[in-house]
Every structure is written in C-alpha cells, then in structure tokens.
Design a protein around this nucleic acid. Structure first.
Lengths: 115, 115
DNA sequence: TCCTTTGCTACGATATTCGTAGCATACACT
DNA sequence: AGTGTATGCTACGAATATCGTAGCAAAGGA
C-alpha cells in the first residue's frame, strides 16, 4: 500500500475558515464536516471499521480522490485513524458521532413532513 | 422587495442525493445542511431574526448568490421562512438547531485538543 | 508465479462557490 | 415630489471543489 503525502487542508481555529471569517470553533467544525462525504464517512464508521473501498461503496461510489481527501482531513482532525482492518473512529470521532446521531431520528420525521 | 422565484434544488428522500445513492433520510439531511453556509445560517438565526444582508455579514461575507440559493433551499425544506423583520427559523428549523447545538460545546473542546 | 484486494494518484470534465456590480422595491425624510 | 438609504435579490465571469474513469504499487494468498 502507498505511503501517501500531500497536506490535509484543515480549517484552522481562530483563523478565517471556509464558511466563516470568525474562526469560531463551531464554524471550524461546520467547515470540516460540511465538506462532501465528511458526515457520511463518520456515519458509516459508527458501526464498525471499513476499508477504503468499502467506504466508497457505502458512500454512493464517491470518487476516490475526494474520499481520500476527506479521509486525510478527518485523520488530521483526529476524528478517524487507519487501523489494521480499515478506517475507524477515534474516541473524539465517536464523541462527535454521538452528537450527530440524534439527527438520524429527526431526519426521518422531517422527510415525512416534506411529502 | 423582490418576490422572485427560481427552483430550490432540494435533495429528495428516497432518491439518490448529492452525497448518497441510498436516499436515507440522514443522508438527505447531510446533503442539505452540508452545503456551504447552510449550518451557519441556521446557527445565526437561532438567536433572532436576521435580514439578508445581516446574514451576509455574519456568514463571513458570503456571496449573495450562494446565500440566496441556500435560503431558497432551507425555505423549501421548511426550516426557515421569510418574516417581516427578516429570516427566521420555523418550528422544524428550531428543532434541527437544538440537535446541532450540542456540537458547539464539543467543538470548543475539540479545537483545544487540536493545538 | 499469478491473482486478488487494498489504498491511493492522475487528470480532464463538470458542478459549485466566490466576488463584484448593479437593479428594483420599499420606506423615511424633506 | 425628490432624495437618500436599506433591503432582497440577479448577473456573470473567475476561482475552487468534486466527479468519473483509469490505473499503479504494495501486500497477501494460492
């Protein structure tokens, strides 16, 4: 397997980020997880480790370039790591997921009302 | 003020969305709120109504074209509406915000650990 | 050795967002 | 009526982000 390089373009706390000039923590987070596939990756890792290609399938065949970019960013953010049997949530990643999880139930009610 | 239309490109439950081929409600939601400024708008509306230009400033001078697109989508999604004194959260929008709010505190701890 | 899986890079095509300019309506004030 | 200001946008070319497809190198397993 490759050894990889290339910087992860992490939003920086305190500095202007993509999505906010203020650099407030919540906006830094929104910047990061608002990027395509970010939340989907966290969601799909919540119930077990997944390989790169496994994640690709589960994320609606995301293009490998973007997926890899997201994985780099999430690793740099300390939310996931590359374990022996695939990618996995870190403790922080799991904490974040726990705070995203309530959106799942709410989303089901929401889409019902949309119809 | 204008009364202008133009379609809001809402992700559709049950159909493939930007970010997921499955059409699961949570992925539909992630698609919508993952778009740039979406979560920032909800966040900024949580403590009071805001005019279009007010939102622009608070969102790091977002370009009006994108902001307007987001506002259309969020309106079509039933999360915000255009009140007399500016944009405001609907009941659903507030419910969603309440589920996003815990991310605020967590983000503060997270950015601390990042340094 | 041959085959498969895995993690990833390359790169042109497409989609999204940005930045700036500006228009039309509404309202206040003179 | 005339002027000024705030507001909600639209237009449009430039800059970024993402997509889609192809393919390569390393790590097993048979």
């Amino acid at each position: 397997m490759s050894v990889k390089k290339a910087e992860a373009n992490l939003p920086k706390p305190g500095a202007p980020v993509r999505g906010s000039a203020s650099g407030q923590p919540i906006m830094v987070l929104f910047d990061l997880i608002g990027r395509r596939w970010s939340m989907g990756v966290l969601w799909n890792l919540s119930d077990g480790n997944r390989t790169f290609r496994d994640l690709q399938e589960r994320c609606g065949s995301a293009s490998p370039s973007v997926l890899n970019t997201r994985l780099k960013e999430l690793r740099a953010a300390g939310l996931i790591y590359n374990a022996k049997d695939g990618y996995a949530l870190t403790e922080d990643g799991r904490q974040l997921f726990e705070r995203l999880e309530p959106l799942g139930d709410w989303a089901m009610h929401w889409v019902e009302k949309l119809r």
